[in-house]
């Protein structure tokens, strides 16, 4: 059944959050030092290459969200914690970067190892 114009406009203004109301113990908290796993999946993933293997600090903890890697493969929502990880630009790009600059990237729990 096709949605009509009222339903479409209402759905657009409502949106569809991928936040999951599930209580899961968080492995990390704001301020923790972490390393991004060096993974190279052939399917969909939201961990960009430029942060793999790099060290970061948890900047924000967002709570539990659907995991895109499995969701894109119709392999389930695999709800897990999502964080904003702060990388120094020098960690990512070396000495050419300004020592003050940062790049903050959202990372799911499955992308992260403790240090």
């Amino acid at each position: 059944m096709a949605i009509n114009r009222e339903q479409a406009v209402a759905a657009a203004s409502r949106g569809a959050s991928t936040r999951v109301a599930q209580v899961i113990a968080a492995r990390f908290k704001v301020g923790d030092r972490i390393r991004i796993r060096n993974i190279n999946p052939v399917g969909h993933t939201r961990v960009p290459r430029y942060i793999r293997g790099k060290v970061a600090t948890i900047e924000r903890a967002y709570g539990v969200f659907i995991f895109p890697d499995t969701h894109a493969a119709q392999a389930g929502e695999k709800p897990q914690h999502l964080y904003a990880a702060r990388f120094s630009a020098r960690e990512l790009w070396g000495e050419q970067a300004n020592p003050l600059d940062n790049v903050v990237v959202d990372v799911w729990d499955d992308y992260v190892d403790p240090i």
Partner: peptide, 15 residues
């Protein structure tokens, strides 16, 4: 200016 931090936010999630 070089003494001001630039912080780039890469929206990899649904945030």
């Amino acid at each position: 200016p070089a003494e001001i931090r630039v912080q780039v936010w890469d929206s990899t999630s649904e945030i």
